[in-house]
Nucleic acid binder design. Structure first.
Length: 129
DNA sequence: TTGTTGACCTCTT
DNA sequence: CAAGAGGCCAACA
């Protein structure tokens, strides 16, 4: 298998403190970047893909610094299990996330992704572990 | 230092 | 069928 990419060091460099390995956060950022345009995934899906414990909340925390790190992480493609834009309030503007998704040809209604199951991108399946 | 909060999910009543 | 509580790990006060 190919060696790991330097994204680890890069992510650590931009992390709030880089005090720990942040391996979990790295994975979250990497997976988020791998989300194709016009597709969406859920926090729990990423958490479950990274580990059986599924700390979905940590995925949200990781996304908290998504706009601070580089390359830019498409956090707007990550929503909750219901397909609701729960993180829209953290995009600076409440409609920022919805607009971004609309540009991705994804229909959004009431801060909720339409046909969410259809646009759902499961890392465990697409990445074929 | 401990305690609470948080872009969540799943089980139980 | 609907509502409530618990659990996960990390950062902030």
């Amino acid at each position: 298998m190919p060696a790991k990419k330097p994204a680890v060091e890069k992510a650590r460099s931009v992390l709030p403190s880089g005090r720990k390995d942040n391996n979990f956060f790295e994975q979250v950022y990497e997976v988020a970047r791998l989300i194709p345009r016009g597709r969406v995934t859920s926090y729990g899906a990423i958490a479950a893909f990274l580990g059986p414990k599924g700390s979905a909340r940590m995925v949200g925390w990781a996304m908290n610094g998504a706009g601070k790190i580089k390359p830019k992480v498409p956090a707007h493609r990550v929503v909750n299990r219901q397909g609701m834009l729960s993180g829209s309030a953290h995009f600076g503007s409440p409609t920022r996330m919805a607009e971004l998704l609309k540009k991705e040809k994804i229909k959004v209604k009431n801060n909720q992704v339409v046909e969410f199951a259809k646009h759902f991108w499961d890392p465990a399946v697409e990445l074929e572990i």
